[in-house]
């Protein structure tokens, strides 16, 4: 079974040379730590920066240079700043190659719910609805089950949706799955996790073809 860093490490393998990537808050943010250093990748943050670098050294924080999580950041050579409209032109116009975000629920049809729990304080969707409605390549990073042990991979989402038929791939602490017309196709197992473990943690339709390999990290 993987921890959050393991999930990030596995997703980092999906990042290819020349990609512009938008990372959501939470596990997705960790992906930047594991991208191979022999490829060129630029990270976009929807508040208006392309070419994000690591956190600044202490004493070098700048209130005017932050990411979408409102954290102080730095920029790398070749970076650019832009307004919000331009930022979402990059996203809606499909110029960003890969979007990685967290989720509370994903349905076997690729619907995603990650912004609202009825009865709880709603903080808002931020840029998530724009990202999922537009991106061609969306990977969800999440735990396979919630804190109560219930599956987050469902036939149908029970929470209010963020987007419909948009998720292509899911990487959890247990598995890598692809969303197909017929349901979740199991691609890889996490180290030490059996197909039966994944079956019992998945409520939605699970497609298992042949031997499912263990993921290489």
């Amino acid at each position: 079974m993987l921890d959050k860093n393991g999930i990030a490490k596995r997703i980092a393998k999906e990042v290819q040379d020349g990609f512009y990537v938008n990372l959501g808050i939470g596990i997705p943010t960790l992906v930047a730590n594991y991208v191979r250093d022999d490829i060129e990748v630029e990270f976009q943050s929807e508040n208006g920066v392309l070419g994000m670098g690591p956190f600044p050294f202490e004493g070098e924080e700048d209130a005017d240079i932050i990411n979408a999580g409102k954290q102080t950041i730095t920029t790398l050579p070749g970076a650019s700043f832009f307004d919000s409209s331009t930022s979402f032109s990059m996203i809606r116009g499909q110029h960003v190659d890969l979007t990685i975000l967290g989720a509370m629920e994903v349905s076997e049809g690729g619907d995603i719910a990650n912004w609202k729990i009825p009865g709880k304080m709603v903080k808002g969707m931020g840029g998530a609805m724009d990202l999922v409605a537009s991106a061609e390549n969306i990977i969800v990073a999440m735990m396979h089950t919630n804190k109560r042990g219930a599956s987050k991979l469902l036939k149908k989402c029970s929470l209010p949706l963020t987007g419909v038929s948009c998720v292509k791939k899911i990487v959890t602490n247990l598995a890598v799955l692809e969303v197909t017309d017929n349901g979740f196709k199991l691609l890889e197992r996490a180290p030490g996790v059996s197909v039966d473990d994944i079956k019992s943690a998945t409520e939605g339709t699970l497609i298992i073809e042949g031997d499912v390999p263990e993921m290489a990290l």
Partner: peptide, 10 residues
């Protein structure tokens, strides 16, 4: 110009 989330590295 208050900073909301001050994040730094060593």
């Amino acid at each position: 110009k208050r900073i909301e989330q001050r994040t730094v590295r060593q």
